[in-house]
Design a protein around this nucleic acid. Structure first.
Lengths: 194, 194
DNA sequence: ATTTAATTCGAACATTTGTTCTAATTTGTG
DNA sequence: CACAAATTAGAACAAATGTTCGAATTAAAT
């Protein structure tokens, strides 16, 4: 049972690292089995369990069985149950998917410059991800072209019947939305390196 | 010359779709060549040009020549040069890599609960990535176990010779570091869904 | 201890597969 | 057209590879 996991891990690791599948014999020597048929036995089990994907009679045809492809998953630790170590499985409330659907063609990212949104927790140097398909509504944080060459991140809201771009910083003034200000999209996500 | 591209495309397509490399003969029939040596000829050219990666004498060892694997790249728009459209190539100052080195085993993520760090732009519900290999130094934001079951994100600093966990919120008190408070790692990155 | 099941081994076999060589064919060029 | 270069074909070979079978060994259960 432990060998199966060992094999599964080696296969995924090999694909991850080298870019292609291992052969049965490479698996054997990697996990310390002297017979290819021993490996075959475990492979058959893994395949019938649905844990491994492989085409019969085709060499190096293992398919990486990651839940999502092209996405790296990092465990998220949430509420820590009493007495368990921090990294224990039970404390994993999920993963950071950087989900595939986030990275489609309607998104792009904007490096934030300036401190006009610090009260919203958006700092100079942060990177915000913008969905071009969502036009910011009142209360949303959006990206706007304020002139031909300059984009800005602001709250959008209506005050006395007029649309304003509203900074999250008392030192900045609201900006009345005129015809030259065009919405780019809604801010959906934020990244910061600390 | 056109056949080379055809072969290259088929290889990448096959890896993308099936999850593993094609064999030389599969390539031959896919691009309409009757001899494996014809394929071989083109493969050799592609490899020597650096357009294709393959291990000699190893079957199905073509490697998808994507710029970076397992990482989705989103363009980052920076300073927008005059007169160019927002998404123009020239305005891309980089990409959000979600770089591979970020996602190794010494990292994990923590869902932030509470508002003790709002002045540092870390909000309730944010997700911070922690590097377990970096012990937070004075001035760093770190994750700390304040008791057996509870982790917290705070600044670390020395005041009058004593170590404190310092919130970024006037409504919270500094916490004197005692033997029961253990550093977990340094906060290196932050994600927020908006 | 005895039996049963699970795991591993060793060997062998049939394909699959990468590679090489030479000849035929096509394409490009003057 | 004539010649050279590039491309393709065909065949053949050695190595790599997936698979199967029965026996041996180990682990688990009764």
């Amino acid at each position: 049972m432990k060998k199966q996991l060992e094999i599964l891990n080696f296969i995924n690791q090999k694909i991850e690292k080298e870019g292609y599948s291992p052969s049965v014999r490479e698996i054997a020597s990697a996990v310390g089995l002297k017979s290819t048929s021993s490996v075959q036995h475990h492979i058959n089990n893994l395949v019938s369990k649905g844990l491994l994907n492989k085409k019969p009679n085709i060499s190096r045809s293992f398919v990486k069985n990651s839940p999502i492809n092209n996405v790296k998953l990092v465990p998220i630790i949430g509420a820590i149950s009493a007495g368990t170590p921090l990294m224990a499985e039970e404390n994993h409330i999920g993963t950071i998917p950087i989900p595939e659907e986030k990275f489609n063609k309607n998104l792009f990212a904007l490096r934030v410059s300036g401190d006009s949104m610090i009260d919203a927790g958006i700092f100079n140097g942060d990177t915000v991800v913008i969905n071009k398909d969502i036009e910011p509504k009142d209360g949303d944080i959006g990206a706007f072209m304020v002139n031909e060459n300059e984009a800005t991140i602001k709250f959008l809201d209506t005050i006395s019947g007029k649309k304003y771009l509203i900074p999250a910083n008392k030192n900045y003034e609201n900006i009345l939305v005129n015809d030259f200000i065009q919405p780019v999209g809604k801010v959906v996500s934020l990244f910061r390196d600390i």
